[in-house]
């Protein structure tokens, strides 16, 4: 394991900003330190070599940025959450003629596909559009392809069953060359696009926004800024969902929301 100190991380952040314009300074430093260490270990590099490497600019620094942002995800991650959304949120959304969902920080599409399945099984798919956005082109390309390993699929299937899916996950993919490909039918209501939560602004109004396990990587200050953006993007009485270990605490917008589920972090905008 290659270990670096916070002072070295700060130097790296400055250099990455100078070369690429991308600013990690608002990211949660402990996670960034961990991912930098893992990056160096994986590529058998020390910090000095990394500095030399990113001087090339272009691809090199771009790859680094993508690898430093954690994009691990699963379909139906936290099955209880999806169960709750189905029982506590969907009955409410039922009355709308058209629905817009935003999965912010969608990684390789896992969460968006899960939402699409949930909507389909609840009979809401036809009037719903899911906007799934991420900062990383690499994961978005993977998301558009919708291809997962069979090992991934095994975990996803277990999650799906725990989330009380009404069929079998295999209804929603087919296997080709030892890979699972998500059914086009499921993808037709999903729009994948590039969006930087820390730099880009409001682009639509939504009845439902989930931003799960994304802001966990931001500092307190940056979090507040992004919470403001999510608030502004949400229609009145719309829902905001966060990851299991996140909360609205320290967000600056907590007074505008009603708690639907404090464990699973489902909130409704009331003013």
């Amino acid at each position: 394991m290659v270990i670096i100190e916070y002072s070295e991380l700060e130097m790296l952040i400055v250099r990455v900003r100078e070369i690429s314009g991308f600013d990690f300074s608002g990211y949660a430093k402990p996670s960034l330190l961990r991912s930098t260490s893992r990056y160096l270990t994986k590529h058998a590099m020390n910090l000095k070599e990394l500095f030399v490497y990113i001087e090339q600019g272009g691809r090199a620094v771009y790859d680094l940025i993508q690898e430093l942002t954690v994009n691990y995800s699963e379909m139906f991650r936290d099955p209880d959450y999806f169960k709750k959304v189905k029982t506590e949120v969907f009955n409410y959304l039922d009355s709308y003629p058209a629905l817009r969902f935003w999965v912010a920080g969608c990684a390789s599409g896992e969460e968006a596909f899960s939402m699409a399945i949930l909507l389909k099984e609840a009979g809401l798919q036809d009037k719903s559009l899911i906007y799934a956005t991420d900062l990383s082109n690499k994961v978005l390309t993977a998301a558009r392809e919708g291809v997962f390993t069979l090992g991934n699929i095994r975990t996803f299937s277990e999650n799906y069953l725990q989330a009380a899916g009404t069929g079998s996950l295999s209804d929603y993919y087919h296997v080709a060359y030892n890979r699972a490909v998500i059914a086009p039918e499921l993808r037709k209501n999903i729009i994948f696009s590039l969006h930087d939560l820390t730099g880009d602004g409001v682009f639509n109004e939504f009845q439902f926004i989930s931003c799960r396990n994304v802001m966990i990587y931001f500092s307190l200050e940056l979090r507040q800024k992004v919470f403001r953006l999510l608030y502004d993007s949400l229609s009145l009485l719309g829902f905001l969902c966060l990851g299991k270990r996140e909360t609205l605490r320290y967000s600056g917008i907590e007074q505008n929301f009603k708690i639907i589920d404090s464990e699973l972090n489902i909130y409704q905008k009331i003013k």
Partner: peptide, 18 residues
Amino acid sequence: DYHLLIGPDGRFYYDCSE
């Protein structure tokens, strides 16, 4: 399912990386 990190600011940070 989360790593628990301790930051230089004396706060806990959850992390869901590998």
